[in-house]
Each structure stands twice: as structure tokens, then as C-alpha cells.
């Protein structure tokens, strides 16, 4: 038995999501190898080799892999699957983009966003925005799986797996990277942060969002999140969105400011350890999941809280 894990990275650093996926792959069983596909991603391959319990790292290098576009990744991974019983990837936008193409070509039904493994054929995954939890068995010969990071701890480091170079098909492929707008920040990454402060529609503008949410997050050393309403209104960038269709987070502390608590938002944060809600409407559904609810006008409460910390 062997599992291939696709590494999520930006050619410089390996994401935390990869080590979590390794934990899930180990729970599945067998030898675990990691594929690092990128351009000039030698450091990432070296970092992957240090993850505990990894047998070897496959390193594919080429210009076509710089952004890990799905068409190139399909060409690279599909032949490799001859040697594996399962393909695991983090349920990041990279993983979600790539793995279904491989599943279709292998003629298997993918298991998306799993939160548990109960044997080699049996997987647990949320459906209906986490309002139901489904346990399924797969009859397919090979398994293709994406892994929800909040459900697995990151595998430790201390390993020293061998790094092997693999041939990377050079293309041309029918898709091409044009440009990107990367949100640069010194803050902890949203899905890996110990604390998250999220703002909602009630902030009213980008200026107010930045004036109130950022200093509170700074005090807490927290990542910044947002509801869809806040993102849609342009108060925060799209990759801040927490929820069913945004990022799934489960920090030690989640502070929801001016967020009503729609099921689609709860889907992304209700597994947080401690939830604090600040909302002026005492009936707001967010209070049904909050450990500590403060019924207050955020424009007074947030600065006061920031000062008190």
C-alpha cells in the first residue's frame, strides 16, 4: 500500500496544510510519499523530506509547475498513480482544483474535504455546509481524497526522507498563468492561526474594518477573517472569507465582530475552541455557538477591548 500526497506550497515554503494531509494519509495506512511540483522549489522538497513518517519525496521541477495549474498537474500525476493506491491532497484551492481531474481519469469518485478515516474504504465528510456528517465507503480500487486541515494535526518534523527527481511533462498545456494579486501580510495565515478576528457587514466600510479589526487582531496576534457580506462589500479581500465557500478555520480563539452567524458562516468556524461574539442584536444566531457573547455596539466595544488587552 502506498499513498501519494500532493504538497501545497508557493515554491518557497511548504504550507501547514501539507503536514496535516500527511497525518490523514498515515491514518489511511501504507507508505506515504510527497510530490513537490514547482519551479525552483528545492527548499520545499527539502522541507517535505523532514516531515515525520514520509518514505520519499518526489520532486518535479519545470516552468509549467510554477503555479501548479491543474492541466499540467494532471499530466504529471496521472502516470505516477500506477504506483499508488491513493492520492491525498489538502482541501486548499490548489487541491480542489487538481484532484478531481485525476479522479475522473482514474475513473474513481473523489472523497472531498474529509474529516475522518475509518478504515481503508471508509471516510467521513461534512455535507450541507456541515449541517450533516456523512460516513461513506468507496468501492473504487484507488482512492482520491482531499483533506480538511482543521480535522487533522500537522505531522511532526524530524524525518529525513530521500528526495527523488521525477520527470515533469513540459507541455504546452491549454492553460497558462497570466498574473496574480497576492495579498501580502505579516499576519499568521488564516487556516493555521491560533486566533482569528473576523469582521462582518456591520463594520460598514473598508476604513472602519481596518480601523477596528486590525488593531484588535494585532493585540491578539491573530489572523483576520471576514464574512461573505464584508468581502462582497469590499471591506476585506476575498481570501479572508470564512465559511462554507470560503476558508474553514478552527483556531483556539475566534472573535466574530458584527457577524450575524448565518449557517454558511458557521460552517467555517464552529469548530473553533472558544468563540466570542460581539453583536448588538441579542437574538443574532451567532450567540447560539458563542462561548462568550457580548451584546454591544461594536464601535464602542471593539476599541475598549483592544485597549484592555
Amino acid at each position: 500500500m502506498a499513498v501519494l500526497v500532493i504538497a501545497d506550497h508557493d515554491n518557497a515554503a511548504l504550507s501547514d496544510a501539507t503536514a496535516k494531509t500527511v497525518t490523514a494519509a498515515k491514518a489511511f495506512g501504507g507508505d506515504v510519499d510527497i510530490l513537490v511540483a514547482g519551479e525552483g522549489a528545492g527548499d520545499v522538497a527539502a522541507a517535505a523530506a523532514q516531515i515525520d513518517g514520509v518514505r520519499k519525496v518526489l520532486h518535479a521541477d519545470g516552468a509549467a509547475y510554477k503555479k501548479q495549474l491543474a492541466e499540467a498537474m494532471e499530466a504529471l500525476i496521472l502516470p505516477l498513480m500506477n504506483g499508488y493506491d491513493a492520492l491525498f491532497a489538502p482541501a486548499t484551492t490548489m487541491g480542489k482544483n487538481v484532484t478531481p481531474r485525476i479522479a475522473a481519469k482514474l475513473d474513481v469518485m473523489q472523497l472531498s474535504d474529509i474529516v475522518g478515516i475509518e478504515g481503508q474504504d471508509t471516510f467521513v465528510r461534512p455535507i450541507y455546509a456541515g449541517n450533516a456528517i456523512m460516513t461513506v465507503t468507496s468501492s473504487d480500487a484507488k482512492k482520491v481524497v482531499t483533506v480538511r486541515g482543521t480535522a487533522f494535526d500537522a505531522a511532526g518534523s524530524g524525518g529525513s526522507a530521500a528526495v527523488e527527481t521525477v520527470d515533469a511533462p513540459g507541455g504546452p498545456f491549454k492553460s497558462e498563468f497570466v498574473s496574480e494579486e497576492v495579498v501580502k501580510s505579516d499576519r499568521p495565515e488564516l487556516t493555521a492561526a491560533k486566533s482569528v478576528v473576523s469582521g462582518g457587514r456591520a463594520l460598514g466600510s473598508e476604513e472602519e474594518f481596518n480601523r477596528l479589526i486590525i488593531p484588535l487582531a494585532d493585540k491578539l496576534g491573530a489572523a483576520v477573517g471576514a464574512s461573505r457580506a464584508a468581502v462582497d462589500a469590499g471591506y476585506a479581500p476575498n481570501d479572508y472569507q470564512v465559511g462554507q465557500t470560503g476558508k474553514i478555520v478552527a483556531p483556539e480563539l475566534y472573535v466574530a465582530v458584527g457577524i450575524s452567524g448565518a449557517i454558511q458562516h458557521l460552517a467555517g468556524m464552529k469548530d473553533s475552541k472558544i468563540i466570542v461574539a460581539i453583536n448588538k442584536d441579542e437574538e443574532a444566531p451567532i450567540f447560539q455557538v458563542a462561548d462568550y457573547g457580548l451584546v454591544a455596539d461594536l464601535f464602542n466595544a471593539v476599541p475598549e477591548l483592544t485597549d484592555a488587552l
Binding site: G130, T135, Y292
Partner: peptide
């Protein structure tokens, strides 16, 4: 895929309301 079971997610108990900051 065949469904073994579909269950409710663990319910999160509502905590407490706090007076002030």
C-alpha cells in the same frame, strides 16, 4: 460510494452572555 450513515454534527452549547468588556 455507499452511505454508511448520516449524522448530526456535534452540537455546540451556547455559552454565556457577558455584561461588558
Amino acid at each position: 460510494l455507499s452511505v454508511v450513515k448520516v449524522t448530526e454534527p456535534p452540537v455546540r452549547e451556547a455559552g454565556e452572555k457577558v455584561e461588558d468588556v
